[in-house]
Amino acid sequence: MEITLQLKGPLKKYADETELFRLELDGNELTVTELLQRFEVPASSVSFVQVNGIKIELDHPIKGGDKITVNPRVAGG
């Protein structure tokens, strides 16, 4: 299945500085946590993840066509 992955702000370093890209995944079911592990994004560096714009839990299963947005932690405001 094909998905779109967006690693925002400093997290793009985990994909050779590419923030937004399409990605072909094998047919197996995959959760957001497993996807992050594939890119070696530490969970501690992530504030929250959205699938198609909606904030989700990390055990959320990914479907073909999803857009996964991974937001970094922020401090201050």
Partner: peptide, 22 residues
């Protein structure tokens, strides 16, 4: 580090998308 470099890559405007989506 990852915890702080959002300030460099984006700065506080990054929070607009975070606030909108939540």
């Amino acid at each position: 580090t990852d915890d702080n470099m959002w300030a460099y890559t984006d700065g506080t405007p990054m929070i607009v998308d975070l606030s909108q989506s939540t």
